[in-house]
Design a binder for these strands. Structure first.
Lengths: 214, 214, 214, 214
DNA sequence: TATGAATGAGTGTTCATTCAT
DNA sequence: TATGAATGAACACTCATTCAT
C-alpha cells in the first residue's frame, strides 16, 4: 500500500512524457512533414532535451511509428464502430453522414494523422507499411459498403470506385482542415458529404427503376 | 558579326543545360520527393557535376521553383486553351471532358507537377508561394466555369465548390498516375470524369428540371 | 553513545557500496575496456542507480583510479611479501617460482588489474600516472632482484633487463588468463616461468662457469 | 595523350588524400586508441574538414580497416620474405636476427600497427577479425619455425611455445617503441633478440646431446 | 541516501554549397 | 564554363553527469 504510489507515479510521469513528446512530434510533423522534422526540433517543441527524447524513443522513426499507431488505434476505435454499426438500409445521405462524421471529427482533432498519411515518399519503411495497411483496410471497408449498395458491380470496378471515394474523402478532409473552425469549416464538411453522396448515389438506381410497372 | 553568334550559342547551350537539369530534378523529385532529393543526386542524374548545377541555379529551392514555373507555364498553355475555348453550352459530360482531358494528359506526361504540388509541409517558402498562386488561379478558373453553370450561387459557396472540385481532380489524378497505363488507367480516367460530372451536375438542374411534364 | 554507531554503520554501508561498485566496474572494464565502459553500465551491473554511483565517485576516472589503487594495494600486500621474503640464494627456478606464483595467482583472481594496466592510450591522465607509478615500482623491485643475481651489471643494462622481464611476465599473464582453467592454464603458467628462468639464467653464469675444471 | 593527365592527377590527389588521412588516423589511434579516436579529431589532424574524410571513407571503422589492411600488406611483404627465405640451418641467434630484424624495423616505422593490434575489446568486428587472422598466421609461422627446430614437440606444446614467443616479441616491441631512438633503442632491440634466443635455445639440445659416444 | 529522469555537450555522419583547377 | 574535391553547419543519437523527488 505504501510501495505502489511511487512506481505508479513514475509510470504516470513516463506516460505523460511520452504523450507530451508525441504531441510535440505531431505538431512538428504537421508543420514540416516527417523527413524535414528534426528530433532536436521535436525535443525543443516538447521543452525537453534531446537526451530525454531518446530515453523514451530509440530513434526518430519510432516516434512516428508510435504516433501513427496511437492515432490509428483511436481512429479504428472511433471509425470501426461507425463502419460496423451503420445501418446499411439507411438512405445514402444518412449513411454517408454516419460513416463520415466520426472520420471528420477524428481528423479535426488529430490533424497529424493526415500529415503522416500524406508524406508519400519521404517516410521510412515501417510507417509506409502502416500506411499501406490502413489504406488497404479502408479500401476494403468502403468496398464492402459499396457492395451492399450495388451488389452487381464486378470486383475491379468496385475497387476503383472505393479508391475514388477514399480519394474524395481525403481531398475533402484536407479542405476541411484548411478551413478555419466555424461556419466555413462546417460548410466545407457539408460540401464533402454532398460530394460523396452525389458520387455514390447513382449506384443505387437499378433495383428501383427496374421493378415498377404493375 | 562575330560577337552575336557566340552569346546565342551560349544561351542555347545554357538553356539545354537548364532543361537537362530540370528534367533530372523532375525525375528525382518524383522518386524521392523534394525534401529527400539531394542536389548531388540531381546533378548525377543529369550527368553533370554539382558545381555545374550551381552555375545555373543559386540553390536547391530555385530548382524546384523554376521547374514548377515551367510546368505551370506549359500547363497554362495546354489547359488555358481548354478552359478559355471550351463551349460553355456543352452538356456537362462533354464540358468536363473537354476541360479535364488536357489536364490529365499533361499530368501523365509530367508527373513531377503533382509531386511538387503535393509536398504539403516539407517544401520551403518560395515553392509554397507558387503553390498558392497556381492553386488560386485554378480555383478562379473553375469558379468562373461554375458561375457560368450556376450564376445564382453566392461567392463563398462558389469558392467552396470550386475548391472541392479541384480536390476531387487532384485526388483523381493521383489515382490515374498510380494506375498502370492501359485499360486500368483508362478506367480510372473515366471514373474521375464521372466523379466530377456527378458532383457538378446538380448545379444545373433546379430551374429547368423541376418544372417539366404536364 | 547514540552518535557513534550511526556514522560507523554508515561508513560500513558506504564501504560496502564502494566495494560493490568497484567490483561491478572491474567486471565491466574486463568485458569492454575502460573507454567503452559506460558509468550507467557499471551502475546497472552493481544494481544501483547512476545517481548512487556519483554519490561515491566524482566521475568515471575516479572509479578506475580507485579500483587500480585497491588492486595495487592488494597486489603489493600479496606480492611485496613474495619479493621481500624470498631467499635470494635459492636456485633460479625456485626463486622465479616463489616470486611469480603469487603474482599469477593474484592476476587470475583479479583479471581487471591487467585489463586496467593494458589500456595503453585510451585511459585518461590520472590512470596513466598510476600506471607509471606501479610500473616504476615493479621495475625497481625486479631491478633489485636482478642486482642481487648479477651485481656487476651497470644501471642502464639492469633497467633494460628488468623492463624486458616485466614485459615477458605481462605477456605471459595475458596468455595465462586467456587459457581455460585446468591443465591448459597450468601448462601456460609453467611455460611462463620457464621463459623467465631461461631469460635470467645467463646472468648468473659467467664468473663461475667460465673458469672450470682443468 | 592530352586526356590522361587529368584523371591521373585526380587519382594521384585522391591517393594522397587517403594516405594523408590514414597517416592522421594512425597518429590519432596511437595517441588515444581506436575507440577514443574521434573522426573529427582525425580530420583535424589531417587538416581537412569532416566532410572530406567521409568522401574517402564511409565510416570510422573503414578507416581503421583500411589502415590495418595497408599495414598488414606491408608487414606481410616485409616479413613474409623474412619468414620464408630464412635459412633454417642457421645458428639460432642469426635465425632470430633474420626473422626479427624486419619485424622490428617495420614496427618502428609503423607504430600504429601495434596500437591497432593492442586495442583488445574496444575495436569493432571487422578489425577484431583481422586481428585474429594475423595473430593466427603469426602463430602458425612461428610454430613451423619451431617445428623445424624441435620436430619432436607435440602440437599443443608447440602452439604454447609459439604463443609465448609471440608474446615476448610483442612485449619487446612495445619496449623498443617506448625507447627513444638511438643507443637506448638499439640496446632494447638487442635485448629483445637475446630474450627470444634464450627462450628458444633449449629446444635445440636433444639431437646434439643424444648422438655422442662412438 | 537512493533514485532515475533530465541534461547538454559531444559523436559519427550527411549534404547544400563553394572554389581551386 | 565544367569539374569534383572541399567545406562546415546541422542532424540523429549517446553518455557522463546533475538534480528534483
Amino acid at each position: 500500500m505504501s510501495e505502489e504510489p511511487a512506481p505508479r507515479r513514475r509510470q504516470a510521469r513516463g506516460e505523460r512524457r511520452i504523450a507530451q513528446l508525441l504531441q510535440a512530434a505531431a505538431s512538428v510533423f504537421c508543420r514540416t512533414g516527417y523527413a524535414a522534422a528534426s528530433t532536436n526540433a521535436i525535443a525543443r517543441e516538447a521543452k525537453v532535451s534531446p537526451g530525454t527524447l531518446y530515453q523514451y524513443f530509440p530513434n526518430k522513426e519510432a516516434i512516428a511509428v508510435e504516433l501513427g499507431d496511437r492515432l490509428l488505434q483511436e481512429m479504428r476505435a472511433t471509425q470501426g464502430l461507425a463502419f460496423d454499426r451503420v445501418d446499411l438500409r439507411l438512405p445514402l445521405p444518412e449513411l454517408v453522414d454516419a460513416v463520415l462524421e466520426p472520420v471528420i471529427e477524428f481528423n479535426c482533432r488529430n490533424p497529424a494523422f493526415l500529415a503522416l498519411m500524406h508524406g508519400s515518399g519521404d517516410v521510412p519503411g515501417r510507417i509506409a507499411e502502416e500506411h499501406e495497411a490502413v489504406h488497404e483496410q479502408m479500401l476494403t471497408r468502403i468496398g464492402e459498403l459499396i457492395r451492399s449498395i450495388a451488389p452487381a458491380l464486378d470486383d475491379g470496378e468496385r475497387r476503383r470506385i472505393a479508391a475514388m471515394t477514399l480519394g474524395i474523402v481525403k481531398a475533402g478532409l484536407d479542405l476541411v482542415l484548411a478551413a478555419p473552425e466555424g461556419p466555413e469549416r462546417d460548410g466545407t464538411v457539408a460540401e464533402l458529404k454532398r460530394a460523396v453522396v452525389r458520387y455514390l448515389d447513382p449506384l443505387f438506381a437499378p433495383p428501383l427503376t427496374t421493378t415498377p410497372s404493375p
